[in-house]
């Protein structure tokens, strides 16, 4: 499994924080994903205007903003659901086009959508592998997929009774962890999570946040879209604010004050996009 390969890098480095610093010093910091001057209009509505956005490996970037700020639109552009009207998308320095969700997947972008893209009538394994089933001799390789599913769920330490349980029999939190586990199928480099904690209880939210940290420790770049500032501050390394479809400030999650972020979200302060380096 490619997932295993990514894990191996961090073996011997007990702490995600330390791993990140190793990365910073040994690699020239080319962003995994860089979006430059992205514009997107829906008829008269300007959803995104000249938005810049970067994601690096081993980091969780939170994308925050008020309703209608363009967070979900940006997520959909990253995941290939929407096409930008103008602007550049680069992955590891190369300009790419993301014309469809499956193209995004091929590029290593996995997305958990706000309205959980899961099928209630299928079991956990079938959902994890939906759209990228393993086959052998023209038939589905069910046993192989089940083994892989169990391994991925174990990696995320999620509590699913059985990989053969139908999705309709799972709780909201369990469904969310299946949705997150789904992103690990294939070899993702970037995971986009759109409001992953929106409908969850406190305990379930904690579980999902642990999963998110797990993704970072696996070496992935994580984009977290959320309304909940507590969640954002708990797991993210960097916070990007959008307002009216424009960049309105970048914050280092460990040092930025709650008030400063809130001011950027509500428009009390105006700042543009602050480019790298940040962790210097």
């Amino acid at each position: 499994m490619p997932v295993e390969a990514v894990r191996d890098e961090t073996i011997g480095v007990p702490d995600g924080e330390q791993a990140r610093q190793t990365m910073t010093t040994t690699t020239t910091r080319t962003p995994l994903l860089a979006m430059r001057q992205i514009c997107k209009r829906f008829n008269a509505v300007e959803a995104l205007v000249d938005v810049d956005f970067e994601v690096y490996a081993h980091e969780v970037v939170a994308l925050v903003g008020d309703n209608g700020a363009g967070k979900s639109t940006l997520a959909k552009v990253i995941s290939g659901v929407l096409q930008p009207d103008s602007g550049l998308i680069e992955m590891e320095g190369e300009t790419v086009a993301i014309p469809s969700p499956s193209a995004a997947h091929d590029l290593g972008v996995a997305t958990v959508f706000q309205d959980l893209a899961l099928c209630d009538n299928l079991d956990v394994t079938a959902n994890l592998f939906l759209g990228r089933e393993m086959t052998g001799r023209a038939l589905l390789a069910d046993a192989q997929m089940e083994d892989a599913a169990k391994k991925i769920l174990r990696d995320l330490s999620s509590r699913i009774p059985s990989v053969r349980t139908q999705l309709r029999d799972l709780s909201a939190g369990q469904r969310q962890s299946v949705a997150i586990a789904r992103t690990l199928i294939g070899s993702p480099r970037i995971v986009v999570l759109d409001e992953p904690t929106a409908s969850l209880s406190v305990a379930q939210t904690a579980e999902v946040l642990t999963h998110i940290q797990g993704l970072r420790d696996l070496g992935l770049g994580v984009v977290l879209i959320s309304h909940n500032m507590n969640d954002v501050r708990a797991v993210s390394d960097r916070i990007e604010v959008l307002r009216h479809g424009r960049n309105n400030g970048s914050f280092d999650a460990s040092s930025a004050s709650y008030e400063a972020i809130l001011a950027a979200i509500t428009g009390a302060t105006h700042q543009g996009y602050r480019s790298v380096p940040r962790f210097a």
């Binding site: 659901v81 469809s100 969700p101 499956s102 997947h105 997305t111 959508f113 309205d115 959980l116 893209a117 899961l118 099928c119 209630d120 009538n121 299928l122 079938a126 939906l130 759209g131 990228r132 089933e133 086959t135 023209a138 038939l139 589905l140």
Partner: peptide, 21 residues
């Protein structure tokens, strides 16, 4: 088969099937 699995997925949640590729 993959075809059969996708038939069930489309019937179960059309948008999920679409977003899953």
């Amino acid at each position: 088969t993959v075809f059969g699995r996708h038939v069930y997925a489309i019937g179960g949640n059309l948008s999920a099937a679409q977003l899953s590729g």
